[in-house]
Computed example of a mutant assay.
Amino acid sequence: MNSISNRWAKPIALLAVLGLVASCALPRSGPSKSQIFAGSVQNDGDAFVVAVNDRVTRATAVVPALGFSDGFKSASRLTSDTIRPGDVLGLTIWENVDDGLLSGEASNSTPLEEVQVDSDGFIFVPYAGRVRASGSTPNQLRQEITAKLEEQTPDPQVEVRRLAGDGATVSVTGSVGAQGVFPIERPTRTLSAMLAQAGGIIIEPEIAQVTVIRGRHKGKIWYQDLFQHPELDVALRGGDRILVEEDDRTFTALGATQSQARVPFETQDLSALEAIAQIGGLVSSASDPTGVFVLRNEPAEIAGQVLGRNDLQGAQRMVYVLNLTEPNGLFLARDFVIRDEDTLYVTEAPYAQWTKAISLISGGLTPFANVKTLAGS
């Protein structure tokens, strides 16, 4: 029995030594957990390494703030009667005399067809001059023209008709069913109604963002907020530009994960646990669940709250550590928010390096077969 033990002792020791030596030089997907800790500020490095706890999750739970300004939300809905620049009007003027200013002997009415409201909001009416039409209803404009003509012809009667208009339109582009220019009409005076008119969105609602550009002002919201917050369903104005696009935030996944890539967000609020699941989860034979790291440049204000300091200047390099094997580890990973341009890095388990070393030594045979070979049996 002793001879058998002695017979196996040297090969096993040889394998152990070779494995340890080989593991020191074997390639890996990135730094080990100990190397990351060695580069911390606490060890004269250049990054703060912080273990995630409930306080850290609260301090770092920052998500993009989207919304419309009060100028957008307070705008009233346009009525169908409001005249705007670009509209085309039809006017008919009756005069209570046989030979009036505008009418002839054969008729006491004078039609003025296709009178366009200019870019400043005015129209020209003979003998009434330049009259402001924009912002008025047809009835208000009728009264104003009547008042101006009364000074020159007795008891004029004026009819104002709205024929068409290109001033009350908005453009809708991006990820919608039908891009184009659409008029603001009775059913499409609000943002949600206009998006429906454009065929709705053709991307996942969870990550759809809607931008409205009005002159020099711009507002952006999540598409789903249109239905959760009615005040964001703003009234439209002629010339508004509406853009629907996907959320462009991404994070980078590296290390011992199922995939290494730049990964787009699939939800508005992405947690570390969801990010791991989104890339296929950890690799059971290679990942170290005690070495899940999130790397980011943290604004000084947030970094100060995390570290309990008020002397930080500028963005700080932060490395947040998640240990999924702890009793509270999965809950912390569920609550820790991933942000745009974060790097999610998972270290390799020590066993993975040992397996690589054994595979290198064995040359494709199983460790037990090689032990047997080395033993000379």
Rank of each mutant, 00 (worst) to 15 (best):
V63W: 06
S29R: 13
Q116W: 00
L149S: 02
L78F: 06
A253S: 14
A47I: 12
Q224R: 11
S34P: 05
N108V: 11
A349E: 00
L312G: 15
V170L: 08
N328M: 11
I213S: 09
E204T: 12
P289G: 06
L236C: 06
I36L: 15
S103Q: 02
A59K: 04
A128I: 11
P367K: 01
K73V: 12
T137I: 05
E301W: 03
A198G: 10
P85M: 00
E266A: 15
N139W: 12
D118Q: 09
E144P: 02
T290N: 10
M194Q: 14
N297F: 15
V371P: 01
I221E: 01
L89S: 00
C24K: 11
R216M: 10
V160C: 06
L282A: 08
G86W: 02
V263P: 03
I242Q: 06
P85I: 00
S284H: 08
V337M: 11
P187Q: 00
I123S: 01
L254K: 07
N108R: 15
R241C: 00
D81Y: 10
V210D: 02
V306Q: 05
E206V: 08
Q42E: 13
T82Q: 13
H217G: 08
V17P: 04
D70E: 07
R162V: 15
G86L: 03
Q228K: 12
A375V: 11
G165P: 13
Q224M: 08
I4Y: 12
Q197A: 15
D118S: 09
V117G: 09
E301N: 14
S134Y: 08
L330S: 07
T325N: 13
F48D: 14
P11Y: 04
G308K: 02
G177D: 07
A333M: 02
T188F: 12
R130N: 05
A256R: 09
A196C: 01
P350W: 00
W94D: 04
E326H: 04
E274W: 02
A22I: 13
Q116S: 13
A178T: 13
E266V: 14
S76G: 10
Q152Y: 14
Q152K: 11
R296V: 12
A261E: 10
R339Q: 15
Y345F: 15
L360H: 02
Y351K: 11
A128T: 11
V292F: 07
S32L: 11
P299I: 07
A9T: 12
N96L: 05
I123W: 04
D99K: 11
T252E: 10
T60L: 04
G167N: 10
A25V: 13
E301L: 14
E274Q: 15
D247E: 12
T290E: 12
R216T: 12
A275K: 05
K33A: 13
V41D: 05
F182I: 07
L332Y: 03
W222M: 04
T355K: 13
Q42H: 09
S74Y: 00
G90L: 05
P230Y: 04
A25Y: 14
L89I: 05
G129R: 03
G100M: 04
L360I: 03
L101D: 01
E159T: 15
A61W: 02
R309T: 13
V49W: 01
L78A: 10
I93Q: 03
F122I: 02
G30I: 01
V21N: 01
Q152C: 00
S377R: 13
Q313M: 09
Q152F: 14
G167E: 06
I358W: 01
A272G: 04
